[in-house]
């Protein structure tokens, strides 16, 4: 069986939940035939999804200036490396099938605004595919996270958990990025650690993560070392990413955080705010 055939079997298996007959070699001509049929089905479904997604409510789009001020990685020369890193990460998350959404839990050993910035950029890069959407469940109340919604007073996660009259759709807001939604932290004095154990929180997470097949859910969790019960979110995630802010995180913090995360779902770490190296004269001459 060719490598292509193996990859194809893997993708089909994921698509059909493992019901597709596997391991039956149809020969080279058969492989090609099967691949074409599969591509046709996928393309058809994605086309259908994108048609539906186009109908999503989108009040307005961010201007380039707004994107810059909100620290979105732009597709310009200045952010080539960052964009490449995000795209690489997107591919690793999609694992060959970008059309099927997943729930990604992003947490960090320490509190840092870089985690929110990274998460929204990841959501943004995921939504470049017009057949998928992304939703951010923001559980960290930072200046950066508040910027995404138009009003600071709009209800969010805290409000939903504490107010039974609110439905899930009441706390989901469009952003200035196409196909990207956000559930803000919301207001309220209750500690996030206490809210994570509530039934309303379970309702929210189950609803959001299971509603649409084409939707990526990015859960921005509070710092796992400083807020209790963050590890409860392991259950809802398909993949877990540990964000490590450069030069602010100690080795012992990373080890402690790793102890609380589900190893089977752990995708890896992402180093954030990495400082550029000092450019020596040789570097400037292209000899470094």
């Amino acid at each position: 069986m060719s490598n292509f055939s193996k990859a194809l079997d893997k993708i089909i298996s994921k698509e059909t939940g493992g019901n597709q007959t596997r391991g039956i070699s149809l020969g080279a001509a058969g492989d090609h035939q099967r691949a074409f049929e599969y591509e046709d089905r996928v393309t058809s479904r994605r086309l259908e999804a994108s048609q539906g997604i186009k109908k999503m409510y989108q009040p307005r789009l961010y201007t380039e200036r707004e994107l810059n001020s909100l620290r979105f990685v732009l597709a310009d020369e200045k952010a080539v490396e960052q964009r490449a890193a995000l795209e690489e990460l997107r591919n690793q998350i999609a694992d060959g099938n970008a059309a099927v959404g997943k729930t990604v839990l992003i947490t960090s050993p320490i509190d840092s605004p870089a985690v929110s910035v990274f998460s929204r950029n990841l959501a943004s890069i995921l939504t470049t595919d017009e057949s998928v959407t992304a939703i951010i469940i923001d559980m960290v109340n930072t200046k950066e996270s508040l910027q995404l919604t138009d009003s600071l007073k709009q209800p969010g996660v805290r409000d939903f958990v504490q107010d039974d009259s609110l439905s899930v759709k009441d706390v989901i807001y469009p952003t200035g990025i196409q196909r990207m939604r956000v559930i803000p932290t919301g207001s309220g004095l209750a500690q996030m650690g206490e809210l994570l154990r509530t039934t309303r929180m379970r309702v929210l997470l189950k609803d959001v993560t299971r509603r649409y097949r084409e939707r990526y859910t990015i859960i921005i969790a509070p710092p796992i070392n400083s807020v209790s019960d963050v590890e409860l979110l392991n259950e809802y995630a398909d993949q877990i990413i540990l964000a490590v802010p450069y030069s602010k995180t100690m080795k012992r913090d990373v080890i402690r955080a790793m102890g609380k995360l589900d190893k089977t779902k752990f995708l890896g770490t992402v180093m954030l705010d990495v400082i550029e190296k000092f450019k020596t004269p040789l570097d400037r001459l292209g000899l470094g």
Binding site: T269, M271, V274
Partner: peptide, 18 residues
Amino acid sequence: LTDMGIPVLVSMGKVKTQ
């Protein structure tokens, strides 16, 4: 990190505004 057995997916610099 890799020396500690922890995989590193990507490294990103700070996203800077104007």
